[in-house]
Amino acid sequence: MSAELTSDQTVGVTPEPVLTARNVSIEYEVDPVVKAVKDVSLTLNRGEILGLAGESGCGKTTLAYGLNRLLKAPALMTSGEIVFHDRSGEDVDVRALDGDGLRAFRWDKISMVFQGAMNSLNPVISIRAQLHDVLTTHRPGMSKDEKEARSVELLTLVGVDPSRINSYAHELSGGMRQRVMIAMALALEPQIMIMDEPTTALDVVVQRGIIREIMRLREQFNFAVVFITHDLPMLLEISDRIAVMLQGEIVEMGTAQEIYRNAQHPYTRKLLSSFPSLTGTRGDFVRRGDSTEGAA
């Protein structure tokens, strides 16, 4: 990871909120009850990349699912307010959405790219069917040819050969599957994309390609991204702001620069120093915990 962050990271961010979450608490109704997310508040600005970092089990994924109303039993959102600020100026109370309203909201305003596209694609229908059905449901006016054209356009956007539209999930490599997932997520030109560890299961080289694709698309379409990962150095590279989560709470939030240079919370500092660097003397990390990242 590079030692220096340039100020280019802040291009495209307008400090205008697109999603406001206040006092969100989510618990798992098991025995004993597990409080996965404790009174979390955050604001996502239009077009920005917000990184959500933390180790496994800290609640970042649960929070993301909660934002999109995708929580599955035994998870239950016990309190909180989530407001989506549409481009048109209208404010949507996400928690109050129901039935058809919720369905229309999903994917159109907020879409998701899940962890490990291994299993996120339906194995028994073709890629074409899965790209088309989003369009069929949300844009009922589109003709079959229009849907096909759009699907081809989406695949080209993410760098997948459009002829693969006939393929099935098992015929694609991991990287390609993830790109298809991203193409699907872009289909309705959402205003927010939540990405949950989208590259964790991929090779490092492929990972870089995907990240670059995401950055490029974000520049082109200006959607906000909530990027969830445990890979803090990557977030430092690409995020505008970063929130660090520990045991269900946000312990630190700031711009990437601030976190990199001047992390306040001891956990953040610990996270930062846990990654060996490519530069620096060999053995430094193991012996002394030295890395070129980390607060001065």
Binding site: D108, S111, N119, S120, L121, N122, V134, M181
Partner: peptide, 12 residues
């Protein structure tokens, strides 16, 4: 997972 994806996609 693909069921969660389908729900997130807002499918009927």
């Amino acid at each position: 997972d693909y069921i969660v994806t389908a729900e997130a996609k807002g499918l009927r």
